[in-house]
Simulated scan of single mutants.
Amino acid sequence: MVQGDAVPADGGGVALGDAEFRFLRDFVYEHCGIALGEHKRQLVQGRLARRLRALGLRHFGAYCELLRHDPQSELDNLASVISTNVTSFFREQHHYDLLVDELLPQWLQQKRRSGDRLRIWSAGCSTGEEPYALAMVLAEALERHGAAGIDAKILATDLSPQALETARNGVYPLERLAGISDERRCRWMLRGAGEYEGFACVHPRLRELVTVQPLNLLHEWPMRGPFDAIFCRNVVIYFDQPTKQRLFRRYAALLPAGGHLFLGHSESLHGINDDFELIGRTVYRKLG
């Protein structure tokens, strides 16, 4: 049994003892694939202290016992607490430029000939800014290229229940819209009134294009693909090398030859996977 350490921490909280941190580190790695080094100890302590208060637990040992006896009941909340959901509309603009200028016109032309569907996956969608930005450029491309009849959808998944709730609601403070151009903001974001003053909601057309679902990337995936593109940006920075290798092999299995994988600005497939070739800034194409 993991014993609780009730030694006060800075600020009058409860300290995270060595045994508890070892247990949490192993648990998070096993269930989430996230490697927590010793340098993350204070971060884990600070963030989980709020979770302990919410659950009415007096020490970290009690929280570890909860995870030990009923891991699934708390797994999503734990993952939300230890991961950082930092995102924005049109983050890494060069990815969207590539979609608009090259990829979407090519895909839509191919789909029109073949009758196939178009699918994009936002893996680790956080609070939804990424998939809704993708939906904007997709909706515009469908109109521009006269392809309204094509079956086109974006799958948005994340592990965090709190982030997914925001993504499903599609309601954002006005200051979060900074990455959206004035033209797109006028067209795709509906300004709130009354109790929603200071907020904006995504246009119903974007909701039609985006499906938001919970998913742990380390567990079984219900979808079988294929996807034309997978966006997995600023997600694998939390994973160690073996976990990254497994994940990218699974992504490759869901992409056809020529399918595209988009990573975050500090991420790379170098030395991890040879199923892809680098074709641009953190943009990879599957070989075949």
Rank of each mutant, 00 (worst) to 15 (best):
M1F: 11
D10S: 14
G13T: 06
G17T: 02
A19D: 04
L24H: 00
D26R: 07
Y29K: 13
E30M: 09
G33W: 09
I34T: 02
A35D: 11
L36H: 04
E38R: 05
R41M: 00
L55K: 03
L55S: 08
R58K: 07
Y63L: 01
C64H: 06
E65P: 11
E65R: 13
L66T: 00
L67A: 03
R68V: 03
P71Y: 08
E74H: 11
D76R: 15
V86G: 11
R91K: 08
R91L: 04
E92K: 04
L98M: 13
L98H: 15
L99S: 02
V100R: 15
D101H: 11
W107M: 00
Q109F: 13
Q109E: 14
S114F: 08
S114I: 08
D116R: 15
R119L: 15
S122Y: 05
A123M: 10
S126D: 13
S126Y: 02
G128K: 04
E129R: 08
E129C: 07
P131G: 00
Y132H: 07
Y132K: 02
L138Y: 03
A139S: 11
E140Y: 12
A141G: 11
E143A: 12
E143H: 14
E143V: 10
A147I: 02
A148M: 13
A152P: 15
A152L: 10
K153T: 14
L155C: 01
A156L: 03
A156Q: 06
T157P: 13
D158S: 03
S160N: 10
A163V: 06
T166S: 13
T166G: 11
R168C: 08
R168Q: 12
G170K: 07
Y172I: 02
Y172A: 04
A178K: 10
I180C: 07
I180N: 10
D182T: 08
D182N: 14
E183F: 07
R184L: 06
R185S: 12
W188I: 00
A193T: 15
V202E: 12
V202I: 08
R205I: 04
L206D: 11
E208V: 08
V210A: 10
T211L: 11
T211N: 15
L217T: 11
L217A: 08
H219Q: 15
R224E: 15
G225I: 03
P226S: 00
I230M: 04
F231T: 02
N234G: 01
V236R: 12
F239K: 04
Q241M: 14
P242W: 02
T243C: 05
T243A: 05
Q245R: 12
R246S: 11
L247R: 09
F248S: 01
R250L: 04
A253I: 05
G258P: 12
G258A: 05
G264S: 05
H265F: 12
H265W: 06
D274W: 13
D275R: 13
D275K: 05
L278V: 12
I279E: 04
G280C: 02
T282A: 04
T282Y: 11
V283R: 09
V283A: 03
K286I: 00
L287V: 13
